[in-house]
Simulated scan of single mutants.
Amino acid sequence: MEITTYFEEYEIGDTRETFGRTITETDFVVHAGHTGDFFPHHMDREFMAKSEFGQRIAHGTMVFAIGVGLSATVINPAAFSYGYDRLRFVRPVFIGDTIHTKLTIARKQDDPKRPGSGRVFEKVEVINQNDDVVLACEHIYIVERREENA
């Protein structure tokens, strides 16, 4: 779906939530293959059985990729991603956990490099089936203004 939303139209506090996605064994294997991260924390059941977690934990980068991917449902031709800040892996994610993403417009500011645009900061929370935040970060967008600042 495509919806054009300009900088002025973003409202602080607006929230949206995604549908859920259950993490699988296949996710672990495919992500390890893509990244080369075959550390035993993710791939060795026996190694992790002796750990404080008692089982393998998901790659943080995988949780980030899936959590952000769940939010990619609307194309805004007036905006593009400027990146992510303040990324934290708050709690472990395990095979069988179901995650979804909550996104909240946190703040807006002028873009010092682009007078015809502003920056929108979106709080991103990836949440498990127990309503625990497992990952948090901030997504920054560059968004066109309806009218350029004078």
Rank of each mutant, 00 (worst) to 15 (best):
M1Q: 15
E2R: 11
I3C: 03
I3Q: 15
T4C: 10
T4A: 11
T5Q: 13
T5E: 11
Y6M: 14
Y6A: 11
E9R: 04
Y10V: 08
Y10I: 04
E11C: 03
G13M: 08
G13I: 04
G13A: 09
G13E: 01
R16L: 09
T18Y: 06
T18C: 01
T18I: 10
F19D: 14
G20S: 15
R21K: 09
R21N: 02
R21Y: 12
I23T: 13
T24G: 00
T24M: 05
E25R: 12
E25D: 14
T26G: 06
F28H: 11
V30W: 05
A32R: 04
G33K: 14
G33N: 10
G36Q: 04
D37L: 07
D37C: 09
F39Q: 12
H42V: 07
M43V: 06
D44M: 08
D44T: 04
R45A: 10
R45Q: 15
E46F: 04
E46M: 08
F47A: 13
A49W: 08
S51Q: 10
S51D: 08
S51I: 04
F53Y: 13
F53H: 13
G54N: 01
G54S: 09
R56I: 15
R56S: 12
I57P: 07
A58Q: 07
H59Q: 11
H59P: 06
G60E: 08
G60W: 00
G60N: 07
T61N: 13
V63E: 01
F64D: 03
A65N: 12
I66W: 02
I66S: 08
G67V: 00
G69H: 01
S71A: 09
S71G: 10
T73P: 00
T73I: 13
V74I: 14
P77G: 12
A79T: 03
S81H: 05
S81I: 14
S81E: 05
G83K: 02
D85S: 14
R86A: 14
R88E: 13
F89Q: 05
V90D: 11
V90H: 09
R91K: 15
R91F: 07
R91Q: 15
V93N: 04
V93W: 00
F94L: 13
I95L: 02
D97T: 05
D97R: 02
T98M: 04
T98W: 07
I99S: 07
H100D: 01
T101I: 14
T101A: 12
K102G: 06
T104Y: 02
I105E: 08
A106S: 10
A106V: 00
R107P: 02
K108F: 03
Q109D: 14
D111W: 04
D111L: 08
D111C: 14
D111K: 09
K113V: 06
R114F: 07
P115Q: 11
G118R: 03
G118C: 02
R119Y: 12
V120C: 00
V120E: 06
F121G: 01
E122K: 15
K123W: 07
V124G: 00
E125N: 14
V126I: 11
Q129W: 06
Q129I: 03
D132S: 01
D132R: 10
V133A: 10
A136F: 06
C137D: 00
E138F: 05
H139E: 13
I140D: 02
I140N: 06
I140Q: 04
I142G: 06
V143R: 02
V143G: 01
E144F: 12
R145H: 09
R145I: 03
R145T: 14
R146D: 00
R146Q: 13
R146H: 11
E147Y: 05
E147G: 06
E148A: 15
E148L: 05
